[in-house]
Write a protein that binds this DNA or RNA. Sequence first.
DNA 1: AAGTGGTCTAGACCACTTC
DNA 2: AAGTGGTCTAGACCACTTC
Lengths: 239, 239
Amino acid sequence: MIPKYEAIAADIRRSIEDGALKPGDKLPTVVEFCELYSVSKITVKRAIEQITEEGLITSRRGSGTYVKDTAGLPGQAFFQGKNDRAQGFSYEHRGEKVTSVVYDFSIVNPPADIAAQLGIAEDDFAYHIVRVRQADEKPIVIEYTYMPLELIPGLKKKDLYGSVYHFIREQCGLKISSFHRTIRAVAATEEEAKRLDTKLGSPLLELTQIGFLDSGAAFEYSVSRNVGDRFELHNVTLA
Amino acid sequence: MIPKYEAIAADIRRSIEDGALKPGDKLPTVVEFCELYSVSKITVKRAIEQITEEGLITSRRGSGTYVKDTAGLPGQAFFQGKNDRAQGFSYEHRGEKVTSVVYDFSIVNPPADIAAQLGIAEDDFAYHIVRVRQADEKPIVIEYTYMPLELIPGLKKKDLYGSVYHFIREQCGLKISSFHRTIRAVAATEEEAKRLDTKLGSPLLELTQIGFLDSGAAFEYSVSRNVGDRFELHNVTLA
DNA sequence: AAGTGGTCTAGACCACTTC
DNA sequence: AAGTGGTCTAGACCACTTC
């Protein structure tokens, strides 16, 4: 069942995408939307909030809601729904041929600081994965990942060539809820340069990421280093 | 006037920060919160949503709302409220001595692609600003900024040594609503290396950012290049 | 079957903008 | 003074989890 507010949000989004609503245009008022869709004010408000978070519109109390002037933005405005790369590499590069090179797949006791961030004991086991992800044969990112063994039983090497998130969702029946990230720029080490087909010291976008399930448990600690000129992040931030 | 949902959110946040609610703990149910604060369900829901977006808790339909296990996260969990650097450099480095070096401050016709992104004509004027921002004498970032002259009249060179956002808000009476960003890792040019006191080719975190007012107009196009080992971004993403 | 979060109604009241 | 978005009530109904 699609909630009403999502259907309305999709409708507004579509109006902007196909040009029925142009940059600077004033949207119908909340009350007008209520009549238009035969819904309550809160439902309209919710739809408007969602499109606002996507960066397409902005509201001024007492005045109205307006389409932002995102004319020149190179497609940035229309990542459908969610910001960022919460969807995973496979989703992001759908349409391209996604392959992986696995450099390590083992079960270890993770370093103390990582165990702490995963909320597990120092003598608890975790998978350790090092892999390079490629899109259309071109290496994009190297990932260093730890995942608690107990949360994700039965992970095999072959699963690393597809989407591990898919495995977690479908095979383990778990729900991924959120990620905490730190973003930095770093230089490629000699080993990384070789594995990523780039030069020693070349700039990499590093994401240090802890993933959480809807139970509140951390299921992943991952550092990924993305080749600078083959990867970029997009986001919309509300002031 | 502080809305009720914000007061409740602040209360929940405080309970987690001071340890009254620990990682893995179940929060009171929505209905219990309603009785506790004598408010309606939607108000509680809204407070819970806000804390969820901050990354501290997670809800499971049919089960309850739980404190996430963010024990080991280095303070990341407690950026108060908003993600990211929407607040500006001055705010982010409050407590430190913030200074600026201005390399250019002029009024120009911006390049065509930038004019398009600002939603202005090619023969419209814009400020062009190049400055380095320092915290405690250490250069952190170099910014290349264009701002439409008509939107921000009266900007003077002296304003560039403080917060330009402050000027926009207080002197122009405008409301900043949102930012669209693209994030990359790039290499420092020779000029940048000199200005940022780093080495040629060293990794920089580049933010290409368009800022919007609550009218929907773009007020800023800015590329900022942050020294890799002196700057990091944090964010929380919901799946 | 009982408990819990998610959506929604039909308003009321208020803060703020616009004229 | 009129118009507009923001918050909030007191519920109802539903989807899902837990037992």
